[in-house]
């Protein structure tokens, strides 16, 4: 799979789409970087586009270092970091990040996304949730499904493209089921190309 293939698929999505991006844990690093490249550089570099990255798996500082390697401009991306506090990794906060104390504070995550959408209004916004698996570690499925249902529907009503990262084989069947209920489609990254 090449980032350009993923970028083409993402660009073809109608506004307000909610999409699951399925990553294979055996090729996680390559697939993750390809997805990041497609979402931040290909889709995120289009005029008027802004990206909000909800970091639950890795701290925003880590994702930001990858984004910098992809030459993503600072003013095009903001982070809702819900993991740094929990990991005691909060010494050097990013200026373009807002920090939520815990991945259990799901309402706070929703409110920070809303805050960033209002603070930086854009005709084309993308929200990346990384990842549903990490959220599932910290939250019971009942709560998580409620969170995804409310957040994704809200973002859809605002014509925001939402990408939810999921890692196959790691997740419980219930998580996959609930994700299928709230996304419009799922793209299996491994099946996109060579």
């Amino acid at each position: 799979m090449a980032p350009a293939d993923i970028g083409d698929r993402l660009r073809a999505l109608p506004p307000g789409s909610a999409v699951g991006l399925k990553l294979d844990p055996r090729e996680y690093a390559d697939q993750y970087f390809a997805v990041l490249s497609a979402a931040l550089r290909d889709v995120g570099s289009e005029p008027g586009t802004r990206t909000i990255y909800v970091a639950v798996t890795s701290p925003a500082s880590f994702v930001w270092s990858l984004a910098q390697a992809l030459d993503v401009p600072t003013d095009r991306i903001s982070f809702v970091d819900a993991i740094s506090h929990l990991m005691m990794h909060y010494q050097d906060p990013l200026p373009n990040a807002t920090y939520v104390e815990s991945p259990r504070a799901l309402e706070s995550i929703m409110l920070r996304v809303e805050y960033l959408l209002r603070r930086n209004p854009s005709p084309r916004s993308t929200v990346i949730i990384d990842s549903v698996n990490s959220l599932a570690i910290h939250n019971p499925s009942e709560l998580l499904s409620e969170f995804l249902h409310i957040l994704l529907n809200h973002l859809k009503s605002r014509q925001v493209l939402t990408l939810v990262l999921e890692t196959t084989e790691e997740q419980a069947a219930s998580v996959e089921q609930l994700l299928n209920l709230v996304v419009d489609e799922t793209i299996d990254i491994a099946r996109l190309g060579p």
Partner: peptide, 17 residues
Amino acid sequence: VIELTPIGLLMTPHLKG
């Protein structure tokens, strides 16, 4: 659930899970 932000009070449903 509310948050008091520089752009004003923001609200979202309190999850009941």
